[in-house]
Write a protein that binds this DNA or RNA. Structure first.
Lengths: 215, 215, 215, 215
DNA sequence: CATGAATGAGGCTTCATTCAT
DNA sequence: AATGAATGAAGCCTCATTCAT
């Protein structure tokens, strides 16, 4: 005999999950747009289409909510990084793939950048408290290490490249450009987010990193 | 005895200047520490050792004060960049000098990074409103262009390098590392600001940029 | 197999009784600790180990719950007073017994005092609404009247003593000392609840009341 | 030459003082009526006829305001006790005077009782934090000691009476009756605050205390 | 009988800003 | 130039209570 899960309780559970997910998504957008201090709990509730009180019911307070958003944010990017399968590609292609993924991900997830900035404004306090910080380490780093090693053995890449430094540098080249695009656009008097400018940036990034790696 | 008006009024002027400067410095620290939304006018007054009302007297409101801080911040870095005299150096040394200056400046002025992040969180609204935005363009860019051109002609550097892209990339490599040092430290489980780590990062940055430029 | 309805329903009834008693005890402690306004329905549920909704199921709302607690509190002390059997003792012993009982009861039931204070802060509104107020009249008063009369006839006690006034005074001497022990301890700079201090107080109370009564 | 205090600044100061006094009086009434948890900052502001924000400006938060009210309350009664001049009276009269003063003071200041109850509900935490607790010790105690000693030497009073215990007992007899008058009235079915009942209580108190003291 | 999810009203407190001198 | 007093709006959070099973 098949046990019938009470549809009622299942739906209830799903409601709870759905409510939490709604809040989390709404909070992510609000924090991304206004930062931790500038975010408004009222607006988060409104964005989520739920009662404000419910936020406290599930997430205790603003700080904890922010922390939950950060954790979710990291989980999201790590999950996508896992799909990259860089090990299957020849070294230069793998590096190019990582650069393009990073660039695209930041473009598709502008909230990632502002959330990270907010987290760092608060000295990563929320991350430090999140006992799972180390789990957020990118799975790409290890793969990148083997890619670099393979490239070196094949004679394509230079040796002595620290994969962590390289990973950080790839992120840096994309992140800084996008994070500061408004300021830079104002200063340089040209729109850095225009399609052409974007293509040029990606191209430049590839040149810099591969120009550096390739011997 | 005749009371001399002039020195008194002059002194008063200097007091006024000093007060404004105090407020500006206090505001810079406060905004850097807490962001625009997180900053407190009360604390700024306290930091400046002056009455809160005076801030409004000189700077109208919080937004305008933030704008004034940003402008000052840009003026400060541009002023130091002017002293670089890259044109006097041979191309690789000039580039290395720029990288080291950037790195050092960010290290000596951690507030620069968080202020810039705040400005961008607000989509550079405060900069756009500042009629002097274009004046904030770095004087280094032009010099860098000539340096790159000279390097190319001398056969040291590759050609086709956009000085703006390169300038942005140099800033990016330093900025991202420092801006996200807390988060990265938590994730990698090691202190990215320790002296050794800092030296390694600077070395890596030089290698990437010069490895890319040099043919 | 036949399912027996009766024990089940009986058990359920006992469960219901037990739940109500749990809630009542939890509420008594919570109200005693924080007063009516300071008490939290959440905490009462938690203390009772039961769902908050159940409190409303059994007691309608916070006010009614408080009233129920008060009634129970009075029933409890009256029940113990009934066991005193003062009529069996010679007058001075009977009075001493009452004093000691009062003192002990307040010491054993510190919640009695704060609950009474809360009730009076609300001008005994909850008591006035309880149709059974008069039933809460102490059974001791009548006994005390006969004791006083007997003492007078025997020549031990003075005449003209109103048993209600005396009863109130005995309660007063114990109640005030214990109710305000924290304040008094702070002011006098000594711990009024230390064993020695407590013994001295009881002794003093006996002396005052018997010194007054005895001729 | 007479220095003229700027009327402006003096008035300003008086405004500040007056505002604080208004808030304190309003808070005293509100806390007396509803207790600490039941009191509403909004209502206090309204009672004081001042902006709610001002309460925080002068008193920081609700707890601190409560503490300030308590301190004021103690200062008030101590100040009146100072005027008693018991030392000038013959011992029985002095004691009677103290009893009557206590009774009258509680009747004229019903807020005194509920405030004290509130303070004790919170275990005198606010008093303990008030470094001036010991200063709140009644000046009457010492006088009472000399009165008792004088009475004993004159042969009117019994010996071995602890003035602190006696002082507490006198307060107790009045306090309990008034503090619990609502509850007691409901239980006994008669109005304990009616003029006749009040006179009887005062008379009883005098009889108890003097009956006890007099030998 | 029992419970997790949800809510509207309201409470304490904070904030940028202005007033009056 | 400088300041203490004062304010209205709004922010975070809590509370008693109800809903839906």
């Amino acid at each position: 005999m098949v046990r019938e899960t009470s549809p009622a309780s299942e739906e209830r559970l799903r409601d709870a999950d759905r409510s939490q997910a709604s809040i989390l998504a709404a909070a992510r957008d609000e924090f991304a747009e206004f930062g931790l201090a500038g975010a408004r709990m009222d607006r988060i509730a409104e964005r989520a289409g739920l009662n404000k009180r419910l936020i406290y019911y599930y997430f205790e307070d603003k700080e904890k909510l922010f922390q939950a958003v950060l954790e979710q944010t990291y989980r999201d990017i790590r999950e996508e990084e896992m799909k990259l399968r860089l090990a299957d590609l020849d070294p230069p292609t793998a590096v190019r793939r990582l650069i393009e993924f990073t660039w695209d991900y930041y473009l598709r997830h502008p909230e990632f950048i502002t959330l990270l900035n907010s987290a760092n404004l608060h000295r990563a306090r929320h991350l430090a408290e999140s006992k799972r910080a180390r789990e957020l380490n990118s799975p790409v780093i290890e793969t990148l290490a083997t890619v670099l090693e393979r490239g070196r053995r094949e004679g394509t890449f230079r040796g002595g490249v620290d994969p962590v430094q390289l990973y950080v540098s790839i992120a840096a080249l994309a992140y800084f450009y996008l994070s500061n695009s408004h300021t830079l656009s104002a200063i340089f008097g040209r729109d850095l987010l225009a399609p052409k400018a974007r293509a040029e940036r990606l191209s430049h990034m590839n040149e810099v990193i591969l120009g550096y790696l390739t011997r």
